[in-house]
Design a protein around this nucleic acid. Sequence first.
RNA 1: GGGCGCGUAGCUCAGCGGGAGAGCGCUCGCCUCACACGCGAGAGGUCGCAGGUUCAAAACCUGCCGCGCCCACCA
Length: 865
Amino acid sequence: MSPFGGHGVPFRRIPAMVMPEKPSLDGLESKWDEWWQASGTYRFDRSTSRDQVYAIDTPPPTVSGSLHVGHVLSYTHTDLTARFQRMRGLEVFYPMGWDDAGLPTERRVQNYFGVRCEPSLPYDPAYDYASLERPDDREQIPLSRKNFIELCGRLTAVDEKAFEELFRHLALSVDWDHSYTTVGDRSRRASQRAFLRLLANNYAYTAEAPTMWDVDLRTAVAQAEIEDREQEGQYHRIAFDREDGGVVEIETSRPELIPACVALVVHPTDERYMASVGSTVLTPLFRVPVPVLAHELADPEKGTGVAMICTFGDVTDVTWWRELRLPARVIMQKDGSIGKKTFGERGWESRDPEAANAALDQIAGMYAKKARKRIVEMLKESRHLLGEPQTIRHPVKFYERGDRPLEVISSRQWFVRTLEHRDDLLKRGAELDWHPPFMQARYDSWVRGLNADWCISRQRFFGVPFPLWYRVDEKGNPNYDEPLVPEESLLPIDPLADVPEGFSADQRDQPGGFTGDPDIMDTWASSSLTPQIAGGWEDDPDLFSRVFPMDLRPQAHEIIRTWLFYTVLKSQLEHGSLPWTNVAISGWVLDPDRKKMSKSKGNVVTPLGLLEQHGSDAVRYWAASARLGADATFDEQQMKVGRKLAIKILNASRFTLGMEAAPGEVTEPLDRSMLAALGSVIGEATDAFAGYDHARSLDLTERFFWAFTDDYLELVKHRAYGAHGEAPAASAVAALRTALDALLRLFAPFVPYVTEEVWSWWRQGSIHRAAWPVAEDLGPGAAQGDREIYELGAEILTAVRKEKALQKVSLRAAVDLVTVHDVPERLALLTHVERDLMEAGNVARIETVVADSPSVITVLAPVEG
RNA sequence: GGGCGCGUAGCUCAGCGGGAGAGCGCUCGCCUCACACGCGAGAGGUCGCAGGUUCAAAACCUGCCGCGCCCACCA
C-alpha cells in the first residue's frame, strides 16, 4: 500500500490524512517532496505587490564542481529564512541559479569532450555534438564560441539535474520554475546590456594601462582576484653610480628589473638623501641615467631608504611612475619573460649602449626567476652588488588560482570606475543590514583598500564577450575611442561572429572595415548581476518591479570583496540603489580538526550520503544550530540529535492527537500556565527569527518542546484520559492540541518533512503555507495563565523522579507521601497541580510546609508483598 | 603591519553586569498504557592568562597568550 492509498488518488490531495499506528520517518522525504512540487507549495505568486514579497538572491553554485557540506549549511540557512518569511505571510521569491560559466566549466568541457573554444570560427547551428563522445587521445577539436557554449549547456544540464535533486532532498523551498544559468542567453544579455549602459554613462572606459597580469593565463586580472602569499625572497643591496662621483645604494628583491629602472626615489624629508635629490645616477650594468626623486610613498625605514622605480615591479611603481610623470621602459613580456630591447635607441638611452645590450642579452628570454639569478652574478662581477643578498620572507601577489607571481604589465583593457564611487559604496555598505553585523568590517576594509578601477576584460575565450566592435582605419589600426555598439535588442551578440550594422562580414579585420573586441568579461561582471538576471531585468519588467531590490543576499564571507562588492557596485551604477536590504553570511564547515572542510583535504563527506544516513530533517537541524557568521563544526552527533527530535515530534504528536476525549475550553490553571509559557516562547522565537537568528529560535522552541513532553504531557495525561472527569479532560486535550499546533509551526522551517507529515494528519493544506504562530493563537486561557504553576509542577515532578532514581525503582513506583517545603506564595499555587502531580507520580498524599526556600521530600511506599 | 571573530564541563555550543548552563558523551537506574530510535537521575568547570572598573565580573576596560579569518604599496 502506498501512502497515497494505492488507487491513483490525485496528486493534489494531501497524501497522509490518516495518523499511522506506528509513525516513522521512512518514506516521508520522497512523499512530501513530490507533493510540494506537484501542488506548487513554493511557487511564487507573481501577482503579489513588492511590499508583500520577500525576494532572495540565491547564490548560484558552480555546477562543474560538486556540492559539499558547506553548501548544505549555507543553503539550509537561506531556506530557514525563506520558510519563516513565507509563513509570516510574505510571498517568497526564491529562485535558483546555476553557475556554469567560467574556467571550471571551460576546463571540464574541454576534457570531457576533447574540444577547445576557438572564437574565430563561425557558429555551426547544426553541429553534431553526439560525434564528440569518447574523446580518447585525439587532438582537441576546435569549436566556435557559440557551439562551445551550447556544449557547456549540454554537460551542465546533467549536473544541474543532480544538484536540483540534492537541493530538493534537502527540502529547499525553491521555486524551480525560476531558475537561470550564468552561461545562458539571459545572463549574457544582462551582462552585455549592463556593460553598454556603463559605457553610455561613462562608468566604463578603455585604456592602455599597467595592470596586474597572470603570465601563465596571459590575461589581466582584477584586484579582487589577487591574493598575497608569503614567500621567501632576497634583498640585494645595489650601488648606483652618481655621475658626479660617489654612489647611491638601494635594496631590491627584483634586480632583474634594473634595465626597466626609470628613477630612484627617497622620502622628501629624509635628511640622508636630501643632497642627492635632483641628481642623476647611472643604473648598474646598463648605465642608463635616471633621476633621484622625492615622493611621500618612499619609506625611509625600508631598505636603505632609497627605492628603485621600475616599469613595473609592483603597484607602487605604477603610482610613482604616474605621479612623477616618468617614462616607461618595459622589459617584461606578457608571457613573463624578459624581452629584447635596444639600448641607445630613443627611450633607452645609455652611457654605454654596447655594454647595456650585452647585459640585456644575458637575460633576454628568461623568466624572472632565472633572469634574477643571472643578473646577480653580473652585478657581483661588476662590484655593484654590495654584500651578500639577505634572505627575507615577504608577501608576493598571486592570481588566486595562479602558480607564478603576478607581473604588472601594460596593456589595453576595459575598466569600470570604482575608485571615484568609493564613498558612495561605503555608504551603501552601511545601509545594508549585515547578519552578523561585524561582517560589514570586511566590506569596509576592502572598499577602503581599493587601489585600482575594476579591470573587467580578460584575454580568454570562454565567457561573455564585450558587445563591441572597433572601426579599423586605412592603416589597419582599430579606433578604440569610439567603439561600435549594437542595439540592446540584439543582445547577446558575439563580436567575433556577428557583424556591426553598416558593415559586411568581409570587412572584418580589413583596413577601412571593423574588428570585434577579442576579450571576454571577468566572470564577476555576470555574477554581479544575479538579482537582475533572476529578477528578469528588462526581459520581464513586471516581475522585476515586484522583486527588485531584493530582500536578502545569502553568501559566504570569502566572497564579500567579489560577489557582494561587485553586486553593490553594479546596482549602484545602474539603479542608484542597493541590490538588496539584508545580507546573511554563513560560516564555513570545519572538520573536527578545526580546518575548513574541503575535498582537497580528503574530507570526502557527500551531502547525499549524509541526507540518506541521518535524514534531511536531521541534517537541517545540525545546520540550523549554527549561527550566521560562525563557522560550524561538522558534527554527526548533532545530526543524530536532530533525528531524535524528528522522531519525538512524530510520537508526541501521535499521542496528543490520539486522545479520545473531545477538546473543550482550556479552563485548568496548569493548562493555561503551559500555554502562557508557550506564548512567550513564540514571542521570543519570532523576534530571534526576524533578526536572522534562526539558531536561537530553534533553541527556544526545542527547549520548550522537550520540557513539554517530559513534564507537561506526563502531568496531564491521566487527566486527559478522563481521570478527573470530562471538563478537566477536555481542557487538557484542548491545551495539548493548541500547543502542538503552534509547536509544529515553530518547528516547520527547521524540520519541514516531519512537521508536514504530522500536519497532514489533522490539518488542511501545507504547514509551510500556514501562518507563523502568534501568542493570540493560544486562546484566551493562555493570556490568563500563570506561568509559575507549570514551573512548580515540573519541579516537584522532577524531585519525585529523583527520589525514585536514587532508590533505583521504577518511575511507576508508588509514593506514600510527598512533603513540599516552600514559600507561601508558591504553596498557594500547589492546589492547581496537586491532582495532576498525584497521578503523574503515583503519589498517595501531598503535604505542605511553609519554608524560606523550596525543597521537596519524598517518601516511597513500601513495596507490597 | 592593520582589522574582525573566537577561546565556558571530555566534545559541540548557549549565556555577555547579580544563581555557571544545555545537548552529546560518560556513570547509575527504569520494559512508566506516545516513543527502548525510549524514559529518569547523577558525576563533571580556578568561564585562556594577568591587571583594572564595580557593592558585585564568565560577561565591561587594558595588556598579553592561543586559534581562525579578512585586509595590506612585493623597495
